[in-house]
Amino acid sequence: MTEQQLQDREHFANMLEKVAASQDTQAFQAIYNHFGPLIKAFGVSSGLHYQGDHLPEELVQEVMMTVWRKAGQFDRRKAAPSTWIFTIARNQRIDLLRKLSKYQNDVDADDVWDLEGDTDLFGEVRESRIQTHVKNELNHLPIEQKQIVAKVFLEDKSHQEVASELNLPLGTVKSRVRLAMQKLKTHLGANEL
């Protein structure tokens, strides 16, 4: 990770802790200004705007409301600010899409994607190594692997849906994901994975 990225990570962890400790609106605005445009882009990659022009902006509002409410649960030893906010955005996207669909059930995304009980003392070190490595390697991936990784992680598409969209066999999608993941995780000792 570059010096700048490490500083960002530190900076936004401090901001989240300020929101939790004293409901600091300046800190909250700094988080909004940095992450808001990323959450909106994520909403657009997920195709939310096809279901309503206002939905990507709605996602930003819902995610930031959750950041405000749950700032006290952020723990820098367990997750980077970007990872924590990404998981909130993923869960809010799931709930938002479910509200719009005719299919309903009583289980909220937070009931299913709730891994808070998992305290890992080395989580921060491990995560920062992974993120540094991924950032460095991402640009060395062959274009077809990079494209697929971006799709499976951010575009709200299952492997099967990515295969249909790109008109590729499911096995090809899976093997490209597998190859890309191997490269992105190389250099982390096998024992750590």
């Binding site: 997750a79 980077a80 970007s82 990872t83 906010i85 990404f86 998981t87 993923r90 891994l115 998992d118 890992d120 989580g123 491990r126 995560e127 992974i130 993120q131 991924v134 950032k135 991402l138 990784v149 971006a150 992680f153 951010l154 992105l184 995780k185 994975l193």
Partner: peptide, 10 residues
């Protein structure tokens, strides 16, 4: 969690 960390980079 590793996958989420990777997703966060993207």
């Amino acid at each position: 969690h590793d996958n989420e960390s990777m997703a966060a980079v993207l």
